[in-house]
Design a protein around this nucleic acid. Sequence first.
DNA 1: GAGTTTTCAATGACGTGTCAACGAGTAGTA
DNA 2: TACTACTCGTTGACACGTCATTGAAAACTC
Lengths: 149, 149
Amino acid sequence: MDTQWLSKDEEHAWRAFRRLLTALPARLSQDLARDSGLSPADYEVLSTLSEKPNRRWALKDLAAKMEWSRSRLSHHAARMQARGLIDKEPDPQDARGCILHLTDDGFTVLEEAAPHHLRSVRARFLDHLSPDELAVLRKLSTRIADLPD
Amino acid sequence: MDTQWLSKDEEHAWRAFRRLLTALPARLSQDLARDSGLSPADYEVLSTLSEKPNRRWALKDLAAKMEWSRSRLSHHAARMQARGLIDKEPDPQDARGCILHLTDDGFTVLEEAAPHHLRSVRARFLDHLSPDELAVLRKLSTRIADLPD
DNA sequence: GAGTTTTCAATGACGTGTCAACGAGTAGTA
DNA sequence: TACTACTCGTTGACACGTCATTGAAAACTC
């Protein structure tokens, strides 16, 4: 129905890629949950926070960096705070603002999760690509992701 | 944090591909919602149902075909039924079963959605790939999606 | 045929993401 | 200074997907 005006090649490629688009994130998510009790969203928040030397990031800046809505991050941060992975602090520069801070527990969880996650990304993805394929994929991904919304 | 044991090439490719993995489905979903008031899940159910000559499919078979859990499809079908897009009928072959049926309204919605969706897939994806890239992407997508879970 | 096991769809609880609305604080402007 | 406009994070309603459980019906086993 949705493919009647695609060429055979386009149709097959699009179908195959759609399968990848659903299967790969699902598998990585499963691995992450099983190995570390984290969701991909949890992992992204933890790892992005850990990039800052003081493990702190203003909510709005973290949201912008991750390309999340502030609402989404606010919801998610509340849940992660309840689990002790992060803290919230008032922003001294802006009374409206909110600083998110990676707790020691959160950092430990991340440290233990990272090597498993890396193995997972390799086993389910990177290990099955040739250097050429990796280069093509990177180029095309950048081009398409960089298109305007 | 999660990339310290990836080569530079792997890291860049993985980062770029991850952006694609989130950006592309989000854009297609936005287009679909704006143009037709459908979610990608709605669209998949409608278009898969429309493939059968009688527009009917047992819930368990449809779920298997789409690689959804029966629970997910049961929830989603209930919401789509409330909107008049599909019907539910008892299965004459199996009293436990349930047949999903694409209504005339649902078919009309799909018919009007399809060309918009196709344009969207082209504009946000296919139009920006060379035939070679498309071939590489298809091959690698199939290989990785076909890995065991 | 009776009893057990499996399969089917539905359901409720929960975590998640989006959207619109909100109150509070800041910035820009007259 | 006062007025306006914008930005900040939060909240509530809703759609969505997962998981575990349930009751009913089939399939299997003896």
